[in-house]
Amino acid sequence: MRYAYFPGCSAASTGISFTLSASYVAKRIGLELVEMPDWCCCGTSAALVTSRDLAHALPARSLALAEQAGLDLDVVTPCAGCFSSLKRTVHYARQSDKNRHRLEEIIELPYAATADVMSLLEVMARPEAMEPLAAAITKSLNGLRVASYYGCALVRPQEVTCFDDPEDPQSMDSLMELAGAEPVRWAFKTECCGASHQISEPHGARRLIARVFENAAANGAEAIAVACPLCMLNLDMREAGINESRAVPFDIPVFYFTELLGLAMGGSARRLGIDRHFWPTGKAVRKALAPPPEPSPDNHSTSELPQEVTVA
């Protein structure tokens, strides 16, 4: 498994834990990621609200530079926002030669749109990755109840993303199940986290986050798994603030799906970036990594914790 890799702007900053955990898992399962040369910002929704040409041209430049460098590989990106921008551009370029030439003119580079774009979640949920994943998973996550949160950009619009069900996707749930977690059935898998509106219009957008936590809590989730650095930041960093106005506070840690896979492979919380979270993860990690109960009838010694795990 070898892919061109588009890290996205958050990979070395707010999404650092995604990068740490994804590269850990990738290495363990033989997934080779070759960083694209001089890639630029995908533009995300800010480019889209500015100009459609700009929103297509920014990803096209990165994709064309990879072609020019002879990187004849499909593209994988961990960030759901980058995935959406890149995938939309490939879709647009393949619709007609007129579209492709229009982009070539703007980016001053030839662009054949030969490479496909996939999210890291999609790549890891493919059979060729699931097999080595199953082999590398040495610990069961002990039935930790995980609500898989996909957000918007991975699943909509389906004719562009070509990935999973837009209302009830299953790929992340399957990965969580593979790691020994118990997937939670819940209604907010593909609801919006508010994206950048959490900065530009926090008054109206905060309740979007609260609703996600509320539905996860109502369905007994002990953790939420995400596949997008902005979903992560909006949920994890803002949970404490949301709790300030609540009589009964939420207590649900948020993990990148790659962090939970990494834990199940024996990776340490520090190595996977879990120690960088805002909301405490200790309780969920302890449950996930507790040794399985002895198959004896006299069974009350399951609370011993693995010593090497230090978490926030």
Partner: peptide
């Protein structure tokens, strides 16, 4: 009609135009 949304997206694009990447802080 929503001043903050306009400011945010314009600043986002100004940063990308200048540096080619978004610097969140």
């Amino acid at each position: 009609p929503v001043r903050e949304a306009d400011i945010f997206d314009d600043l986002f694009m100004a940063g990308v135009r200048r540096y080619g990447k978004s610097n969140e802080a």
